[in-house]
Every structure is written in structure tokens, then in C-alpha cells.
Design a binder for these strands. Structure first.
Lengths: 136, 136
DNA sequence: AGCATTATTGCAACTCAATTGCCTTTACTC
DNA sequence: GAGTAAAGGCAATTGAGTTGCAATAATGCT
């Protein structure tokens, strides 16, 4: 599916920003913060606009959100089969301590865990920290 | 080891705040945000002071930091065998979606994962989301 | 193509946690 | 008890995240 088709299939309108934004996320091999997104976008947009677009993408299942080590949100395009509000990207994320980048590791699967009696688990994330390929 | 001995063993001075703070963290069954810590402390202290104390504890291996779902830091006392800068608390954390609490789950062990060639893993966290015992 | 409808955007203001500089206070050492 | 360095208080700042509202533009319909 093209970016345009993807956007349309979720009921979004086709605007310069949203097209560029989704393309950018798809082409990146790592998750980007909003600040990074703003720098890399060719179009000149307001922070609030990017903010709302990213949130809309997440809710629609076009992108998923990861918290980097310091608590800032990073976004990456979803593999493809995510639904509204339900992300099935069951993979780990790697945070580089040197450059701060967040990588998606589709090869690392999430473990099945048992939570204590009374708790009901709905989702899980596996976060790894270390040094990335480029920084080694 | 008593709280005082613990503090002294890490080279800290014995102050009212730091004693109370470490005691509070040890007695809590869940990780606390700085705001929660400030509310629960009997002594009246500045935010910056609590901030520095928590960071110092983390660096010294007395407490570990967990990010709650929204990016805020939570702190919990370490089990005991953590070193300066190297936390060995290999357990998962549970974030309740209703009350926002963060629980340590010592019973859930972290999986051994293989990272791609070129990456060097140093640490990992397993974060679970759902509904906690009290909120069910 | 023209028009109405409604999503999207820009602007501005605001929240809140996190953070820092600087000066004062105080716990610890000798 | 005096000196020293850590710890604390105060004030100001950063930066991400949010929101309301009015202006703009994409889409559907005729």
C-alpha cells in the first residue's frame, strides 16, 4: 500500500505534512522523537500540528510510540497489521546510550510472562539498552 | 543493613531527608514518582533537593528508576545487590492503566535476548501494562 | 466547477517534570 | 571547635507535551 492509500484507508485527509510524515517514519530504521521529526521534515510546520499528527497515527495504528531512556516519546511506522488502538508490533526496542537512538528489533520477540494473581496484563514492552552498531 | 548504614556505606551524609527518603522507598511496595515522594515525606523539602537525592540514590545503586507509561520517572529501593551505576534488579515492572501505579514484579524474570550483530546490550527492562490487583 | 462540511493547521498560551546556578547551611573529619 | 565538602534552599529556566480557538484547505456532493 502506498502512503496515500494507507492514510486514506484510515480516514485521514491527504495533506503535505501527513504524507511526508508517514513516509519519513517508514523510511527510518529507528524510532524518531518529535523534535527529530520536525528537523527532518522538509515542510515547515507547527509543533502542535506534528504532535496531533503523530498521536493520530498512533491511534489509527499507523505508528507506534516508544519511550526513549529519558522519557521522551519516539515514533516508528508500524509493520502493517496494527489496528485502531491495538498494536501488534510484538518486538523489542534498543536504546543506544551514546547517540540516544531507538531501534526496533523485529527479530527479538517478547516473552510470555505470568503476572501475579489479581493482576491483568494487557500489553508489554521489552526495552534494551547498550551501544548501537554505529557507535561501537 | 539499616538505612543509616546503607547511606554511610555509599559515602552519603546522614540527613533527615535522605534517611526518610530511603526508608520511604524501602517500605513502599511500588515505585513512586518524585511528586508522590514529596507528598509522603514528613519533612518539608525543596523539589530540587528531592531531585538530587533521588538521582544520587540511583547512581549509587540504592534505588532504581522506572519510567511510568507517560514518561515520568518512578523510583523504588533496590533489592540490595546493586552497584554504582550497575543495577542488577532483573525484574519486570507493571504499570496499572487505571491508577497509574508502578509495581515491581520480582517473580517475573527478564528473558535472555540476542541482539543483532554489531549491537552490544548492557541492560534490559520488561514493562507490562494492565490493571492492578486493587483496580480489578 | 462551485459549495458546504469537517478535518487539519497555525498561533498562542499553559502545564508539568526535570534541571541548573548560586549561595547558605550543616554533617563529618581532624 | 574549626575547616571542608556535601547537602539543601531558592529562583529561574528548559523542554516535551497539551489545549482552545480561529483560519485554512481537503473532500464529498450537486
Amino acid at each position: 500500500m502506498t502512503v496515500t492509500e494507507l492514510l486514506r484507508s484510515k480516514g485521514f485527509r491527504i495533506t503535505a505534512l501527513r504524507t511526508e510524515l508517514l513516509t519519513l517514519l517508514q523510511r527510518s530504521d529507528r524510532a524518531l522523537t518529535q523534535a527529530e521529526v520536525e528537523q527532518q521534515l522538509r515542510v515547515d510546520v507547527d509543533r502542535a500540528t506534528v504532535f496531533r499528527a503523530l498521536n493520530a497515527f498512533e491511534e489509527a495504528g499507523l505508528a507506534h510510540r516508544v519511550l526513549d531512556g529519558s522519557g521522551t516519546s519516539c515514533f516508528a511506522a508500524c509493520a502493517g497489521d496494527c489496528d485502531e488502538g491495538h498494536h501488534k508490533d510484538a518486538h523489542a526496542h534498543f536504546h543506544c546510550r551514546k547517540c540516544g537512538s531507538v531501534f526496533c528489533l523485529p527479530s527479538v520477540e517478547l516473552p510470555k510472562v505470568k503476572v501475579p494473581r489479581g493482576f491483568r496484563m494487557e500489553q508489554s514492552q521489552l526495552e534494551l539498552q547498550g551501544t548501537c552498531k554505529a557507535c561501537t
